[in-house]
Design a protein around this nucleic acid. Structure first.
Length: 450
DNA sequence: CATGATGATTTAAG
DNA sequence: CTTAAATCATCATG
């Protein structure tokens, strides 16, 4: 503001002298048709402007001062104030609280969720390194791509923050500037605090609209980044053999109720994490006290979900597998039970001990089904899921031993249909005939049990 | 390249 | 929230 007059001032020497210069341009530009009157006007205006700029600060300042000192000034000022008061009152109605822009909220939420606008957590590569370290000792492979992602993300984050800060600063600067100006002017014209506030609000709105642009483009950048990297959420890595074995062991040893409890899941996850390099969602670590929603060991849950449905869908396909794992656990179970009927401590997969809290509402049914399956009456003394797992295992033992002695023909030595028919963990057995040998549900294993 | 296996995500129900 | 079921997208293989 100050500079312009000054510049003009220094310029005037030339400007005034070279005055013809401008009109000449005008002449050529407008053509001759308009006549001289117009040109003259323009020339006058220009002249005036030049003059105004010529008087510049000192003169204006002086004039202002003179005004301020005028003896009628206070009275006039008051009058002005009153008038202003009224008009402002009438205007005020239009000025209402802006509703929180949903769009902006959406952006904010997303940025927060994406960890862009959240609390700073170490800078750039440090964060990446930390992430890599945090994702477990075995997480070398996927944390590599994750760290790449994180690095890029924190880059975005940094840009976002610096930009945001810059805007903030500029906004504050501008605001204080305007406020000073208004304060200054309030000596010569009435300016209510309300008005200043409003002005500030306007400024803030303008700036926040700029911020929104920033946020929007940041969101876009994150989205793009996501789609390029993390969208490889779908980029899956198969579990390694050991992990699937652990899971399968649990599954088949709890075949009648393959719903691991939360704790069981965590335990499985822990066991598998040793071998599974694929744990994107940090889970196993100590539970967080705040009501943070830890979505329950996703890989394990996924695995069991998939396994259940796929097993059910085509049991025939899983028979071999079932027998294998049944055999394996059978050994453990046999060993354990031979020692004593106590709940065995071996680190067997049928760690039913930890799973004592299974949903037992239907355990009665399950027992029933097992009884009828085996053809022998199982003593009803057992209570709890651990027993259930024993039952499963036992059944496997029986069927399996019988089957193997006969031959490897891989007939259905162990017919899971029984479970289905009796309403195990699902009702509808494969409706389609698919390799379903369907014997009488009750008589299924009568031969093998002999 | 087609195909089956498989982990993850989505949808709908409880 | 958890599950079942359907579906997707990738991996692994021949």
């Amino acid at each position: 503001m100050d500079e312009q007059p000054r510049l003009m001032h220094s310029h005037t020497g030339v400007g005034m002298a070279g005055h013809p210069g401008l009109p000449q341009h005008m002449q050529e530009g407008t053509g001759g048709t308009d006549g001289d009157g117009r040109k003259q006007d323009i020339g006058d205006i220009l002249q005036q402007i030049m003059t105004i700029t010529d008087q510049s600060l000192d003169e204006a300042q002086a004039r202002k001062h003179a005004l301020n000192c005028h003896r009628m000034k206070p009275a006039l000022f008051n009058v002005l104030c009153e008038i202003k008061e009224k008009t402002v009152l009438s205007i005020r109605g239009a000025q209402e609280e802006e509703p929180p822009d949903p769009q902006l909220m959406r952006l904010d939420n997303m940025l927060l969720a994406e960890g862009v606008s959240g609390p700073e957590k170490g800078g750039g590569s440090a964060a990446a390194a930390a992430a890599a370290a945090a994702s477990g000792g075995a997480g070398a492979d996927n944390s590599a791509e994750h760290s790449d992602y994180r690095a890029k993300l924190s880059q975005i984050r940094q840009i976002y923050h610096t930009e945001l800060e810059k805007y903030e600063q500029a906004c504050n600067e501008f605001t204080t500037h305007v406020m000073n100006l208004l304060r200054e002017q309030s000596r010569t014209r009435p300016i209510s605090p309300k008005e200043i506030e409003r002005m500030v609000n306007i400024i803030h709105r303008k700036f926040s609209s700029i911020q929104m642009q920033l946020k929007q483009s940041t969101c876009e950048a994150v989205m793009i980044l996501r789609s390029r990297f993390l969208d490889a959420r779908r980029k899956r890595r198969n579990f390694n053999k050991q992990a699937t074995e652990i899971l399968n062991e649990y599954f088949y040893s709890h075949l009648s109720n393959p719903y691991p409890s939360e704790e069981a899941k965590e335990e499985l996850a822990k066991k598998c994490a040793i071998t599974v390099a694929q744990v994107h969602h940090r889970s196993t670590s100590t539970r967080k006290h705040p009501p943070t929603n830890q979505p329950t060991t996703p890989p394990v849950s996924n695995w069991f979900g998939n396994k259940r449905i796929r097993y059910k869908k085509n049991i025939g396909k899983f028979q071999e597998e079932a027998n294998m794992y049944a055999a394996r656990t059978a050994v453990n179970a046999a060993n354990a039970s031979s020692h004593g009927s106590q709940a065995n401590s071996p680190s067997t997969p049928n760690s039913a001990g930890s799973a004592g809290s299974f949903n037992m509402s239907n355990s009665g049914d399950l027992f029933m089904s097992v009884q009828s399956l085996n053809g022998d009456s199982y003593q009803g003394a057992q209570v709890g899921a651990n027993v259930q797992s024993q039952v499963d295992t036992l059944r496997h033992v029986i069927s399996q031993t019988g089957g193997y002695s006969e031959g490897l023909t891989a007939n259905q030595m162990y017919s899971p249909q029984g479970i289905n028919a009796n309403g195990g963990w699902q009702d509808a057995p494969t409706p389609s005939s698919v390799t379903s040998p369907t014997e009488g549900p009750g008589s299924v294993h009568s031969d093998t049990s002999n």
